[in-house]
């Protein structure tokens, strides 16, 4: 019983992450979800969600880059001069992305080929720059990495639900395994660009409805 009560008051700190960390984590994961809350990083969201495997690899890569980048930037936050901070962040992010790209090319050559230029485009993904600028640049290492983890998992979650829907309806499969019976022909449109836009739009509607979120008058 007492557990139930505590579940409703997350500030008490009953989990692995205590108090503030948990709030920061949940903020990134749900309230300020990068895709459905802040609407950042839409390019890769739309491009790689045609197959679940692509989406999973992409979102894990972004999460790793986010976390490592946040740790580096928050540890260097007192040394990077203010005027050149953007270019410094850019260089750090590019270096991390080059590393990720090499790792993918070696261990997952097929997916790396399928993702193509979109791995490199993690550099210009606004989520990473946004977290660096808004959070890591003026918070301690510990809390910035929790923030990055929350945002990264929020991104992963958003990409995976979009990809699950698109692969299931567009190809009739999940992670490449055929799940829908043969006679049901897949709706090809969800695997091509227009379907990506429709899926994103509808999921935004659904998530906003679940949240009971009041949009600024549309």
């Amino acid at each position: 019983m007492s557990d139930n009560v505590q579940l409703k008051t997350p500030k008490k700190g009953y989990r692995l992450l205590s108090g503030k960390s948990w709030m920061v984590f949940k903020e990134g994961l749900w309230h300020n979800n990068p895709i459905f809350g802040m609407m950042l990083g839409l390019c890769s969201t739309l491009a790689v969600t045609n197959l679940m495997s692509n989406a999973l690899v992409m979102s894990l890569s972004v999460t790793i880059v986010l976390i490592v980048n946040s740790i580096i930037i928050s540890s260097l936050r007192n040394f990077i001069p203010d005027r050149i901070r953007m270019i410094a962040y850019m260089l750090i992010i590019s270096t991390l992305v080059i590393a990720i790209d090499m790792v993918l090319k070696i261990f997952l050559p097929d997916i790396s080929k399928a993702l193509g230029a979109y791995v490199a485009l993690i550099i210009t993904n606004c989520i990473i720059m946004g977290r660096a600028e808004a959070y890591a640049s003026n918070n301690s290492i510990g809390i910035s990495s929790v923030d990055a983890l929350g945002v990264g998992l929020g991104y992963t979650f958003s990409l995976m639900i979009i990809a699950t829907f698109r692969e299931l309806v567009g190809f009739g499969s999940l992670f490449g395994y055929q799940v829908l019976p043969e006679p049901l022909s897949p709706m090809k449109i969800f695997s091509i660009p227009p379907g990506a836009f429709f899926t994103l739009g509808v999921f935004i509607l659904i998530i906003n409805t679940i949240r009971g979120h009041k949009e600024d008058d549309a």
């Binding site: 739009g201 935004i204 949009e215």
Partner: peptide, 15 residues
């Protein structure tokens, strides 16, 4: 629908 928000309806139009 109001809950599409700006981004949601823009995505549908783009589609």
């Amino acid at each position: 629908p109001r809950r599409f928000g700006e981004t949601g309806i823009t995505a549908i139009i783009a589609g």
